[in-house]
């Protein structure tokens, strides 16, 4: 065979050999271990740290909220509807990012440094699932946002952890005040709210039998200026937390008495209008939830004044503001008479 042909063949063999060696040299160890890929990459991909940790992860520290949630409508595992903690609050685990993203790794999970979101704009969050929209299945509870709540936040009425209950909180707030101490302190209140907390033709509302939690919240509102009344603001600013607790305990323990009976005729007319109030304040003026005030035992004048204050905006209340808008003057009078005439039980 001519020499140039031999050279050519040798060159080809050499190239082949170099190529083969290069292939052996450059192929990763575990390539072809299971197939045409790097076998070790399987375990590498599986080694990432999960970010979403599940609701059980939250339970150990947030037992109270967890219990609330687990009994509520956002945890209906029997029909497959479960809104887990991390759906609204974000992932609790921050994973370490491998490779070129190592600089992004914080390496901490939620309780350590990583703060979770407490959503402030419930209107934006809740409507992700509950805004009425074509395509959403009928079994999904949906609202027309504009007519359902105006511009109010969902959390004014709904507890996001257990929204079906409809009201902010049903858990009774423990009252640590002392009624006996409260009685002494109540001397300052008698002038306007009446002896034994029963206001008869006095400027203030009756306080006897009032829910303690509402009493404390109302007093606090006067103290902070959220509710404004020249008389009450002055008293409230001078009252400590302990005073509020003691007074609340005292008045809550008193027996409510109907202030006047003269208005009972108008009361009959107010019964129909009262349907707007019953959901929160009860048909008999005893509220279904301790966060709201009882209406029983108040004078008609006080109730009318309160409704007008809401209507004019001088008294603030997200729920009430929406409701009084719909009341005419006559209806206001009548519904006030209706509740003024409700008998104490």
């Amino acid at each position: 065979m001519p020499r140039h042909i031999v050279r050519l063949v040798l060159l080809m063999v050499a190239i082949g050999a170099v190529g083969y060696v290069a292939k052996i040299f450059f192929t990763a160890d575990s390539f072809y271990e299971y197939g045409h890929y790097r076998g070790k990459s399987v375990a590498e991909i599986a080694s990432d740290k999960p970010k979403y940790k599940g609701s059980e992860y939250c339970e150990s520290c947030h037992a109270e909220r967890f219990a609330e949630w687990s009994k509520g409508v956002h945890n209906k595992s029997d029909i497959g509807k479960v809104v887990k903690c991390e759906v609204c609050h974000g992932a609790a685990g921050e994973r370490d990012v491998r490779g070129m993203f190592e600089h992004l790794a914080t390496g901490v999970d939620h309780p350590n440094k990583l703060k979770l979101v407490v959503p402030t704009d419930a209107r934006k969050l809740c409507t992700l699932c509950h805004e009425k929209m074509p395509g959403r299945p009928a079994q999904q509870p949906q609202i027309v946002v504009a007519s359902h709540a105006g511009t109010q936040q969902c959390t004014v009425c709904h507890n996001p952890h257990s929204p079906k209950l409809n009201l902010v909180s049903t858990a009774p707030t423990p009252i640590r005040g002392d009624a006996a101490r409260g009685k002494a302190k109540a001397a300052a209140c008698v002038g306007c709210h009446g002896a034994e907390g029963v206001s008869v033709n006095l400027p203030g509302p009756s306080l006897a039998g009032q829910n303690a939690a509402y009493f404390i919240a109302a007093l606090k509102a006067y103290g902070t200026g959220a509710r404004d009344n020249p008389m009450m603001s002055a008293f409230a600013k001078g009252a400590s937390d302990d005073d509020a607790q003691d007074l609340a305990a005292y008045f809550a323990a008193l027996k409510c008495q109907s202030s006047l009976t003269a208005e009972k005729q108008a009361a009959a007319a107010g019964r129909a209008t009262a349907s707007k109030c019953i959901a929160c304040h009860g048909a008999d003026g005893v509220s279904s939830n301790r966060a709201w005030p009882n209406l029983v035992g108040h004078s008609k004048d006080y109730l009318v004044a309160a409704l007008r204050a809401y209507k004019s905006g001088s008294r603030k209340g997200n729920m009430m503001a929406g409701i009084v808008k719909t009341l005419s003057d006559a209806e206001t009078e009548n519904v006030a008479a209706y509740y003024a005439g409700a008998s104490c039980k």
């Binding site: 991909i45 979403y52 479960v82 887990k84 759906v87």
Partner: peptide
Amino acid sequence: TWCYHRITKGLQPACVEVCPVG
């Protein structure tokens, strides 16, 4: 990846984990 790093640890993929309606 069907969250391969989760399913190999006995967890559900993240999308399944958070789906509120199943």
